[in-house]
Structure formats: structure tokens, C-alpha cells
Amino acid sequence: MGSSALKHNSPKSPRQTRSIAPFLLTFFILFGIWLLLSGRFDGLHISLGVISCLIVAFLSSDLLFTSSETKGMTVTWLRFLRYIPWLLHQVFLANIHVLYLTFHPRMMDLIDPEIIRFRSKLKSNISLLTFANSITLTPGTITVYVSVYGDFQVHAIDKPSGRPLPGEMEERVGRIFSE
């Protein structure tokens, strides 16, 4: 368990050899972003864009992709897109809850902050990051600490907020990254 979870931890130093696939993938993603940002499609700006994307891809392609992660990328991203509406719905519910707490006159009686600990079964860094940020965005909970093995410490604002963790959200995040 340990070695597989820790594979992507340290970024490779630039001197190590790189494969060409992540480089090209980074280049095309960045070029899409460039076209969106620029909005000018004449020769000068397009060629500037190609040069800039080459520079950034050379500088940072090992940050965006580590070589083992490129397989099955598209399926993961499609599943991630399907996760977003559910997450937005949860975020909206969470905000209504916090808004209710904020404007409640006897707020001090309602809240009961505590720190919850649990162990998640997710393994890779990216799924842990998605889960941790989803926790921070949704009902009354903030991720305090995550270890590489998936030990979470979560600060919850009141009892009903912290109870459903890890629960459904972990299931869904696990399904995205097929773990």
C-alpha cells in the first residue's frame, strides 16, 4: 500500500528523462487555454501562443502529469464532469446551512465545533485532494490534515455536519478514480 501511494509524491528533478506523451498532452491543453484567453486568431498571436506553450510545457509538464497517470485519462475526466453537478448541489445545501447558522440569533447554542478523525480508503494523491477539497466545500466541515495514507482530521461546525463523513462523497470520489 505504501509504495503505491507514495509513487507520485516527489516531483522528478528536471534532469531525469521524460517521455513525450505528457509533454504533448500538456502542450495541447495549454494551447486550448491560450486560445480561450487570447481570443485573437491572427498569425502573430498564434505563433506567440505556440512558443509560450512550448516554454511552459518544457518547464512544467512533469508537474501536470506524471507518466503513469496518462492511461485512462479521458474516462476519468468524463466521470469527473459527472461528479461536478452533484458536488454543486451539495455545496449549495451546505451554504444554505451555514447561512442559516450565521443569521440565527441563538447561533452560539446551535454550533458545537469538534474535530473528527477517520481513515479514508482512497489511495492516490489526486483522489485524496479531490475528496479533501470537496469536504472543505461542503456542509460545515473543513479538512485540517490529510496524511498520504488517507488519515483525515476534519473540523466540523456542529454535530449534524460531521456525522455523514466519509459516507457517500467518498464512494463517489472513489468511483471517479476507480479505486
Binding site: 455545496v91 451546505a94 451554504n95 451555514v98 447561512l99 450565521t102 454550533i111 465545533p113 472543505t136 466545500l137 460545515g140 473543513i142 473540523h155 461546525i157
Partner: peptide, 11 residues
């Protein structure tokens, strides 16, 4: 401080 972060971060 910790509970203040809930409205600051989410809302």
C-alpha cells in the same frame, strides 16, 4: 478562528 473559516471559505 476555526469556526470563522466556515463562512469565509464557503459562502
Amino acid at each position: 478562528f476555526y469556526s470563522r473559516l466556515h463562512p469565509a471559505g464557503k459562502l
